[in-house]
């Protein structure tokens, strides 16, 4: 199964003075088990696109099929919502229960899980975002710091163990350690259960570290697609549409601009260390 968008168009507030076309004829296929990074400037249509994936928004024209279900008016979307978990860009808007534990368990209601199983899922999900169950279970989700709220909201979706997991800006507001732990957890879950993972992010670093394929959006259209090294080798074009490349790629591009023969598609610390080390050791004189 997969996600297939055909000529997907979405217009907000049609026939009013403030109408906006947020998605314009988008064609796209995401296969089972892919890890996708969705990038683009604010307002480029990323959040609108992913809200079609679990039926929160319906197309103005064109079609969208998700896990075999066509998202149109009148279709019962409840089964789909169970398979496709979406963490919103402002997940604190997703919190509403009295305590952290009840909030994270919310999506597990009516799933036939026992009390014990529910508790285990909740504990595991909170652990994944670095929130200690015993300390926080009875706290009100509204009496937490910004980053803590975000983590609880993410845990609520993780606990549902969806087949397709979509996170809209999952690491915004998280401290560096939590960010690293969360990304590692997602990578592990993805491997173990083979889920489809879609990450929307302004952090080029997160994207570089995580995904197999990047989809770049600009003004409601797909601007480019490819592997992280393909996409990030186009620094200048990315900057022109409001984006950037990760700092290590910036460094390598800047060194190349000074005439050094180094690869441009370096995305992580260890490979940067290796290629620069090799160049410093020997190649330096030959350049």
């Amino acid at each position: 199964m997969s996600i297939i968008a055909t000529n997907l168009t979405h217009v907000y507030s049609p026939s009013t003075p403030w109408t906006t076309k947020a998605l314009d004829q988008v064609n796209l296929e995401i296969k089972d088990g892919e890890v996708i990074g969705l990038i683009g400037h604010t307002g480029s249509g990323k959040s609108t696109l992913v809200q079609h994936f679990n039926g929160l928004l319906k197309p103005t024209s064109g079609t969208i099929r998700v896990q075999g279900v066509e998202v149109v008016k009148g279709v019962n979307l409840r089964p789909l919502r169970r398979k496709v978990g979406l963490v919103f860009q402002y997940p604190e808007h997703q919190l509403f229960e009295e305590t952290v534990a009840i909030d994270v368990a919310f999506g597990l209601k009516n799933t036939g899980l026992s009390k014990e199983e529910t508790k285990q899922r909740v504990e595991k999900a909170l652990l994944a975002v670095g929130i200690e169950y015993e300390t926080y279970m009875d706290r009100s989700p509204f009496e937490l710091s910004g980053g803590q709220m975000r983590r609880v909201a993410i845990a609520g979706v993780l606990a549902m163990e969806p087949e397709v997991l979509i996170l809209d800006e999952p690491t915004a507001g998280l401290d560096p350690q939590t960010r690293k732990d969360l990304l590692e957890h997602l990578r592990r879950v993805q491997k173990e259960r083979g889920i489809t993972l879609i990450i929307v992010s302004h952090s080029m670093d997160d994207i570089a570290a995580m995904v197999n394929r990047i989809i770049v959006m600009d003004k409601g259209k797909i601007y480019a697609q490819g592997s992280p090294s393909e996409i990030f080798s186009h620094g200048e074009e990315l900057r022109q549409i409001g984006l950037d490349v990760p700092p290590l790629t910036q460094l390598l591009l800047a060194l190349r601009a000074r005439g050094l023969d180094l690869p441009a598609d370096i995305l992580n610390l260890e490979s940067a260390r290796a290629v620069i080390g090799r160049w410093l050791k020997g190649g330096k004189d030959n350049v």
């Binding site: 350690q177 700092p247 290590l248 260390r273 080390g277 410093l280």
Partner: peptide, 23 residues
């Protein structure tokens, strides 16, 4: 900083790793 759940800029880290490698 890492004990405190933080990090250093990735460029700083790269410099430190290269220094460890003897550069």
């Amino acid at each position: 900083l890492q004990l405190l759940h933080l990090d250093v800029p990735v460029i700083t880290r790269l410099g430190q790793l290269l220094a460890q490698d003897g550069f």
